[in-house]
Amino acid sequence: MINLHKDHESLLTIIIVVFLGLSTVIAIIPAYDMQEKVTPLPKGLDLTTSERNGLKIYISEGCAACHTQQVRSIAMDNKWGKRPSIPSDYYYSKQRLSFLQQSPSILGSERTGPDLTSVGTRQPSDDWHLLHLYNPRIVVKESIMPGYSWLFEKKKKSAVSEKDVVINVPKEFMNDDKYDIVATKEVLDLVAYLKSLKQVDLYNTSSPEFIPALTKKEAASIANEANNLPDGEQLYIDKCSACHQLNGEGLGGAFPSLKGSPIVLDENHDLMIQIILQGYDARAEYAVMPSFTDQLTDAEIAAIANHEKTSWGNKAPTISEEDVKKVREYLKTLTP
């Protein structure tokens, strides 16, 4: 009979063998299984060289400390992606980074900032990303994210060439007429990586379902209660205010103002709905606006449009869910 209290050799052996055994069962085998059995999605794309370099910047700056990249299978995560994340989503991004670095831990464990699973869909504009990375408070006033000014170069205006990507920093954040802020290759790679973050469509429709929230959401704000529309203000803050700002005034040279905008105030609201649905990239002086066709329902678009039409001094007639539906169907007929 082994007496562990007196026999140090047996004690050491048991400690090692049992722990190794448990570790193999709970970590090594499942990890190996995950690694070998998971295949990329048919529509998934490998990262380009630039995007992969961007991922390396993402890791070395420690972005994963505050940003998750996983849409969990619970209702509250629905806002970060159309479907819960599946192992195949990470096939390309979670390859080993380099000889010295392991596969990046991008799933994250804290959500101090928003989840980035589909930030490329939410925010496809280069200008927004660059401004935001230079100093997040230019575009999101309450943000507590650090600015990454060392990923930019301060160049004399005379030295700026055509190839340089100049970002349009508002005066209150840089009051120096002689210099321009120019994006470095690193930050352009990082933006390329962030823009590549999109959820890939699954071929078959049997994607995992979200577990519903514990409490049913309180219906609508008072303004929209009659029409049974969701809370337009909250939706606006979430989806629109990063560019158009909370006060609706946008940012000069990057994002147009909605306050007093002829398109918003127009009684014929078809163009406004069309822009929200399809996105907008017609004016060179402004950044690209993404399409919201897949991201917002008719009711949500109507709620946002109504919020824009009745806030910040805007006074225009409101619209209904039906109006959005009509435009959406009309647009469908144009693109077969």
Partner: peptide
């Protein structure tokens, strides 16, 4: 001491994909 030696070796095995995430949790 012994467990942590084993642990730090397993922790640095070159797993990829979500295999790495399982190891991370462990």
């Amino acid at each position: 001491c012994v467990w942590t030696i084993i642990l730090s070796i397993i922790g640095y095995l070159p797993f990829t994909g979500l295999g790495e995430t399982i190891i991370q949790g462990y």
